[in-house]
């Protein structure tokens, strides 16, 4: 409820802070994925994908989202357009 208020006033209420912190904490509690694990996961993922298709590593976004009681790992991976060289 405080969300739209803080948009108008430009200030974050402590309740908003609590909610945002809890979102992160709960995802990490539920999945055992801490920032360190996340980094390794990201590196391994990028490495695996780039074996098959060209990507721009700096544009890759990997986030965790909560949906009800489920957690999702969401990877947003822009692909580089490949050179249009065709044979034949």
């Amino acid at each position: 409820m405080a969300d739209w208020l803080s948009k108008i006033t430009g200030k974050t209420s402590s309740a908003d802070a609590a909610k945002e912190r809890l979102k992160l904490v709960l995802i990490h509690d539920r999945t055992d994925i801490n920032p360190e694990v996340m980094e390794k996961l990201k590196d391994d993922l990028l490495s695996a994908i780039s074996h098959h298709v060209a990507i721009e590593p700096s544009s890759v976004k990997i986030t965790m989202m909560q949906e009800g009681r489920e957690q999702r790992l969401i990877a947003d991976i822009p692909l580089k357009p490949h050179d249009r060289k065709r044979i034949g």
């Binding site: 409820m1 405080a2 803080s6 209420s13 909610k19 909560q66 009800g68 009681r69």
Partner: peptide, 19 residues
């Protein structure tokens, strides 16, 4: 406290716990 923005409301808690 909820009105002042110093306590999460029921919707906030429900969104997190989702039961």
């Amino acid at each position: 406290m909820i009105q002042r923005g110093d306590m999460m409301d029921a919707d906030d808690v429900l969104e997190l716990l989702a039961i």
